[in-house]
Amino acid sequence: MFRRWWQRHGLSLVLVGVGLSAALFLRQTQGVVIQEFFALLVNMGGTIEEPVEPEILLQNSKLWELQNRVQELDQQNKQLKELLGYMETQNVEAIAAPVIGRSADSWWQQITIGQGSNAGIEEGYIVTGIGGLVGRVTQVTPHSSRVALLSDVTQQIGVMVSRSRYQGVLKGDTADPQFAQVSFYEKVPDVEKGDMITTSNLSVLYPQGLPVGKVLKVDYNAGPAPVAMIELSAPLVALEWVKVIAFEPKELDFELLPEQNVSQNR
């Protein structure tokens, strides 16, 4: 009886099992196989060369000029901090990576970049672009990494007003990825149009002081606390190259509740 049934349905049962477990394997490994294959396809034909066009060359030289100035200021800053007796460990190593893929679904804000663990990228590293913070590496394969953009709904980044140090939390705007909202913790925060927003010193997953955006307008009537509309300084919709910076998430000294654990992708 059973043998007959098995002869009729055995093969399809086994195939269903194989198919389902393959899909579950993909899901548990976060699609490493697909993403790696995709990266190989994109990277085919040797290394990706940076585009060299007159306009870009001009931009590059401008960028170099600014970089030089930043380096100079950085050095001065360091010396001043040393004078003040500040201790700081700085990771200046950065890995350049091309953007090779976009989000697979419109409800998520993410990108895939063309460098992975072979280039030294690890989970939790910070991704920046021209203009400022872009996001955070959430998954790494040998030749690619998946990056959660700062405008993604699960990335609630702690930010602060650069001028007045008022703290808030950043939430991506649903209508346009280039804009975001900052809800403040204070009832009456000191924030004005044109203020610069940077990552907060209280942020666990992001280093302090990375430029995020600029305040466009402030809505004081929003409940429970005022909300500022900001324009992100990194052009998230037109990203082509990004810079990955090594960063170790700070240790938390308390247990996260399960519902708080969304941003850590566990």
Binding site: G19, A23, L26, R27, I34
Partner: peptide, 23 residues
């Protein structure tokens, strides 16, 4: 039944490509 099994498998594959598998 095969349609539903296909849906679960394809759903897992799609979830694998996102930064968070939930939703």
């Amino acid at each position: 039944i095969y349609a539903v099994i296909g849906a679960i498998a394809v759903g897992w594959i799609h979830d694998s490509l996102m930064i968070t598998p939930i939703p």
